[in-house]
């Protein structure tokens, strides 16, 4: 007996009769809604993390620029001291 083919036949039969009804029932719809809501929350959270990453990158850039400016200032001050 070809079990594979029989298996698929059985699955199809189940799907066609009871399965489809379950999948489109009101309870199933509630599950889908919850999953979609969770998906949207996930999207919002991801986008929030992206924004936060961007802000943190801005922080780092600002601090780095500050460090460089301080160094430059120290260098010029040193030069003035030597000349004075």
């Amino acid at each position: 007996m070809n079990w594979t083919k029989t298996r698929f036949l059985a699955y199809g039969f189940l799907l066609g009769s009871a399965g489809l009804k379950v999948l489109t029932s009101k309870d199933a719809k509630k599950v889908y809604t919850k999953i979609t809501a969770a998906g949207m929350r996930c999207a919002d959270e991801t986008l929030r993390v992206v924004d936060e990453l961007r802000e943190n990158a801005g922080d780092i850039a600002a601090d780095a620029r500050q460090i460089n400016e301080d160094r430059k200032r120290e260098e010029t001050e040193k030069v003035i001291e030597d000349a004075a």
Partner: peptide
């Protein structure tokens, strides 16, 4: 205040 540097604050 999350972050502060010269001329920029978050």
């Amino acid at each position: 205040i999350q972050h502060m540097s010269a001329g920029r604050m978050r």
